[in-house]
Nucleic acid binder design. Structure first.
Lengths: 345, 345
DNA sequence: CCTCCTTATGGAACCGTTTGCTTTACACAG
DNA sequence: CTGTGTAAAGCAAACGGTTCCATAAGGAGG
């Protein structure tokens, strides 16, 4: 049926081993044989069977990512899509395929990762986000499997990771508002088990303290990376007796929710409430008003993660003193949502 | 190192074949043996090697999709993400993994598909969109490989496909505007090599003709599924001496571009120009004003495609007279962007 | 002319499963 | 007691490659 290495060998009058060597560019194959075999492979339409190859080489040339099933309840889909594009593009360039599986919760994720890795279906894993006390990381670390974390671990120092400096990013975002004259600044955070939520909150704190501004506990609310959280946060904030004049939100989707709410209540942005958020998804410049946002280079994050992982797979000299934490630069994109100086009360 | 079927067999004092049969639930295995072997597998931490399994069974339990490399230049990323979520979720439920590769153009796509399929790395393919004279389809059809097309083919009748009734959808969209009193309606189409562009254009035509409205060639412009196309189309339309009072746009992203442009020029939507578009991406209700859109059930499209493909892989009785075209229903979501009756000139 | 390298190739074992064909061990009928 | 049927398990040959080891041919050096 399908043409194998043996068929090619027979037709070329050589042994299967020779064909295999031609394929892998073995040095001790005469130019003549090589050319002949290649020609025959070509016209017989030979394609190597990856399964057979993987079986003996114990390598699959593919990596995997696990998509949180209800993606829309965690991050914005756009975030993941950008990440995936970066990962797939780079992997493709390095000759790797990307396998996507999905898991509704940490347990399912662990099962999927374990099955894929122990079943030798993939060579490594990219974890798309970092949370506290992640059992998946324990498994990967314990099993010595190649993996890279997007974000950072709260417990392991020496694992490969690609991250932003989220503390600094939040510091920058907050400082931007402060420099515009704001003093009462609120913060809409994400799920507390996500490291990124904590880091950004931390940056906000630092900036506030650094400028000697008072921080009220009621000015910090937790939510998801979702519009609804923004909507709820907005109505909470606007009902406060001494309400903030500006907000830092952990994700652009949250800002959209805030915007929607303010719009319904006929408040103006940035006049009544200025806002800046994170991720700079393609739509943040499309809303009205356009949202100031910290661009964290999502595509780049994915691209780098893939690159780092594949390098780690190909030469596992991870013990060397090289850096294993890669930081993707961020930058603040100022748009209309934060372009207003509050009037002093 | 890793524990194989042989290790389990040895420890259990049975032959490898017996262990294999336990694994696959073979009827002629005594309950006692089965229990013993299972217990041993458990505590040795046995995981089947998928490569070995695939090699002999000629089946991989995975399917693939090809992501157009510069995704943002074709469709909106949100579209793909929704599709992927649907596909991955369903595949996961059926015990399949999804492999994503990427190709910058039709040639690269063909190479990727061919490599994956002929190299027996995947069992089937989902084509994420349909274009005219697609060489990839020829390859799949010619090779007898299982695949399903999202959209429809312009040349093959009997291939598995999951589609919307795009002609009808466009008909509905246009009719909605007509019923609001519009008579001068323009159309912003997509790339002409995409079947979906043609179908929607066709539906627009039908609706116009059906209502006896004049159709001017200059009221139909071509673009991409991108904001920029909308922006350009807008400035073209607004400079026309006898300009349309409403627009049907092939994708929500296009609407965003139109909106942005109109906003810059201080035109009002829907007062100066009403608009309705397709796909109902999550952000179409967030823009100002929110955009009327045809919801085509993207997630559902992906989910069904995966289901249909996997069914086709598992029992290839495709010769039966069963239906092989699945139509996902659409529905019009009316929002502010089309809620205005034009004043008669 | 014989030995020793070097270079190009062949042979065969192995990677971890599946599966068709046997074999073993009973139980039971004739 | 021999023959037959059946349930349970083992043997060994694939599946399509890779790779270690052996071998043959052809110099080169002594």
């Amino acid at each position: 049926m399908t043409v194998t290495i043996k068929d090619v060998a027979k037709k070329a009058g050589v042994s299967p081993s020779t064909v295999s060597r031609v394929l892998s560019g073995h040095p001790r194959i005469s130019l003549e044989t090589s050319r002949k075999v290649k020609a025959i492979m070509e016209d017989m339409g030979y394609t190597p069977n990856m399964m057979a190859k993987s079986l003996v080489s114990k390598t699959t040339n593919s990596i995997c990512i696990i998509l949180p099933k209800p993606a829309e309840e965690l991050f914005s889909n756009l975030f993941f899509m950008e990440l995936i594009r970066g990962i797939v593009t780079q992997a493709s360039r390095s000759g790797y395929d990307v396998l996507i599986s999905s898991g509704a919760n940490e347990k399912e994720e662990l099962e999927a990762v374990s099955r894929l890795l122990k079943g030798r279906r993939v060579d490594g894993v990219i974890l798309l986000y970092s949370r506290k006390d992640d059992a998946v990381i324990d498994f990967l670390q314990g099993g010595g499997y190649p993996f890279v974390l997007i974000g950072r671990s709260d417990r392991y120092e020496n694992i490969l990771s690609v991250d932003n400096d989220n503390v600094m990013a939040a510091y920058d975002a907050t400082n931007h508002l402060i420099s515009m004259g704001h003093e009462r600044i609120g913060f809409v955070s994400g799920p507390p088990n996500l490291i990124v939520s904590r880091d950004r909150l931390e940056g906000y704190r630092k900036a506030m303290e650094n400028s000697g501004l008072t921080m009220r506990p009621e000015w910090i609310v937790e939510g998801e990376f979702l519009q609804d959280s923004g909507y709820r946060a907005m109505s909470f904030f606007m009902n406060l007796p001494n309400r903030p004049t500006a907000l830092v939100a952990v994700d652009d989707m949250v800002s959209f929710g805030v915007l929607r709410g303010l719009n319904e209540l006929k408040y103006k942005v940035p006049d009544d409430l200025a806002i800046v958020s994170f991720n700079n998804i393609p739509l943040s410049e499309l809303s009205s008003p356009p949202i100031s946002s910290i661009d964290i280079g999502i595509y780049h994050l994915g691209y780098t993660a893939s690159q780092v992982l594949i390098q780690g797979i190909q030469k596992p000299n991870n013990d060397a003193g090289y850096t294993n934490r890669f930081v993707i630069p961020h930058r603040l994109i100022v748009r209309e949502s934060s372009m207003h100086t509050p009037s002093k009360p």
